[in-house]
Design a protein around this nucleic acid. Structure first.
Lengths: 146, 146
DNA sequence: CCCATAAACTTGAGTAGTCAAGGAATACGC
DNA sequence: GCGTATTCCTTGACTACTCAAGTTTATGGG
């Protein structure tokens, strides 16, 4: 097997392991999945804590339909709300609620702890994490297009 | 956001992009997903081209139930067959069929091409791929246990 | 102005996995 | 050996996506 294929397959395994850990921690402590948390984090980074669903899809690497479905439970539990656009009736914003804004920092703390554990010494040196991030950035498009 | 969390989230994005490319290529040319291909490849590496389903699950980072479901369509299209164990009636082997053995090399070639494209110069240098593989290996346990 | 096209979103159907429960067969302690 | 525990596997019910099709609203050319 080629080196490149080997690297790609290892990436798959690493991601699967990573998702399981994050889901376990975030789910146990805050009742959200890693996907939920990522969505909330993006929203929080957007001006006003709100985004058009289509832009959210692009930012998350999902389809529009995936965003519709991901948002539904978050709206149900009151972390996100749906807001119409005054100028364009087609668009619906997804917006962090007060509760969402309140809870996000605790989730972020949990996520950072989890990430720190994953990349803990002794296996991981100081420089390894940024190197890995750099390499991954070359791979991970910011969208769905091939 | 911490460096470690950033790296973890980039890993998620990179994997999503990667799966989409492999699925498109492998699906288009051979009618299998990346998950299917990975399963077939593991089988081919095992002595006799067969494995107990439970070991296959461990090797792939899936649950036993996931393996049952993944195997069903591969058995249906005749790439894998189910074989009983003479000594232990609980275990069922998954075994590459003749067709499976025939087709796998073509799939492997496609997968290697795809991986080579993903890691193509100029963005990727000679040493980058093994470095990435090394870093990923530290993350990706060989199983489901936390 | 009006029609055609395009954009934003939702919905139905399908795929890929999870977990929890359960059936059947083997292995172990005494 | 005999009952209990354990292993292997499958199944039902769920989550999280995908794609294709449809609805609604906006936009731009004649």
């Amino acid at each position: 097997m080629s080196d490149t294929l080997d690297a790609a397959l290892r990436l798959m395994r690493a991601q699967a392991a990573l998702v399981r850990r994050f889901d376990a921690r975030l789910g146990g402590l805050h009742g959200v999945s890693l996907a939920d948390f990522t969505l909330l984090l993006r929203l929080a980074q957007a001006p006003g804590g709100r985004m058009r669903r289509v832009d959210l899809a692009e930012a998350l690497g999902l389809t529009a339909s995936g965003v519709t479905r991901a948002l539904a439970p978050l709206e149900r539990i009151g972390l996100v709300s749906r807001e119409p656009d005054a100028r364009d009736a087609r668009v619906a914003y997804a917006s962090l609620t007060g509760t969402g804004r309140e809870r996000l920092p605790e989730m972020l703390a949990t996520a950072e702890e989890t990430a720190d554990e994953l990349f803990a010494a002794p296996a991981w040196g100081e420089r390894d994490v940024p190197v890995l991030a750099g390499l991954l950035t070359r791979l991970g498009g910011t969208g769905l297009r091939s």
